[in-house]
Design a protein around this nucleic acid. Sequence first.
DNA 1: CCTACCGATCGGTAGG
DNA 2: CCTACCGATCGGTAGG
Lengths: 186, 186
Amino acid sequence: MTKREEIIQIGARLFSKRGYAATSMRDLAREVGMEPASLYNHIKSKQDILDDCLMMLAQLYADSMQKASELDLSALQKLERVIHDQIDISLTHPTKVSLIPAEWVHLEKSKQQFIGIRNHYEEGFKQLLLQSIAEGDIRKVNIELTTFSILSTLRWLHNWYDVEGQLSIDELKNELTQNLIEGIST
Amino acid sequence: MTKREEIIQIGARLFSKRGYAATSMRDLAREVGMEPASLYNHIKSKQDILDDCLMMLAQLYADSMQKASELDLSALQKLERVIHDQIDISLTHPTKVSLIPAEWVHLEKSKQQFIGIRNHYEEGFKQLLLQSIAEGDIRKVNIELTTFSILSTLRWLHNWYDVEGQLSIDELKNELTQNLIEGIST
DNA sequence: CCTACCGATCGGTAGG
DNA sequence: CCTACCGATCGGTAGG
């Protein structure tokens, strides 16, 4: 891991714990183990760290939706894929994912791009739901409400899973996917 | 509305938009229409505003659970009550509710009390699920996962509802409650 | 409710 | 990667 990656990882942890605005570069330097001024040999700015965290995740979500759309599967199976991918992303990058709900507002240059990717993802999700209804695999649910409900649950996963030692990742995937899908299946 | 209430309401709106730490008392004073120093004739501190917002909500949630528990109803009906109450609270105090996920960490004196009330509420929710299973009204679901899934959806509601002009409040209550409960009913 | 102001801390730069 | 430092801004107080 490069020093830059280490700084970004520790930064994500601090941002996650105290919030972006309330974390100072002095706090970060202390945790990394260097003087505040030295951080700037590895990163351009505080904003640079947030940017790196959130845009990296945005890319993962976009890739997930893109790949799923290209598969030769039913819409419901594609839906299960993107749900599994979201669970994987949440468990692989929990601290970065925890920044999404609250800290994306502090993005500057990348903010519009981030919003664009997020909207595109949600649009793709709704399309998969619509298709699944058309294919007869799920009931005629309210698309907006169901999308919002499923994505809310997935967005909050990082806050919940690490507190719980009961379920393995695969059990979680199965239980959670079933929980989210079964309620709307035909 | 007293001046204090006005300051707190505008404060909640700014905290909600930019975050607690990133909102300055100068920003707030400008929006309220007075000099920064004058705010302190109505509030004790910046923290005082956050405290007021979050503890007021905590009280509403606690009251909701308390009242539901005293009713002569099935556990499932009690569950529907607290879900309805949460929807009401989210729609009545959307900006204050939006502070919960990210800004409770900035509480100081009240933080432990806030966490206590939240944990007590979640415990009550799980108990209602358990009882509903015992009473044969819902399937033998994973309690932790189902609690987390329902509460996540409700917690995110404020972010979603105002963007949507389709559903009336009562339609929302019915559709959402059905969506949350139906998937786990027997 | 305002003017005037305080010490502390902020993100970041210069220069080596 | 460090020492030394900058201008800006912060939450809040004194005194009227």
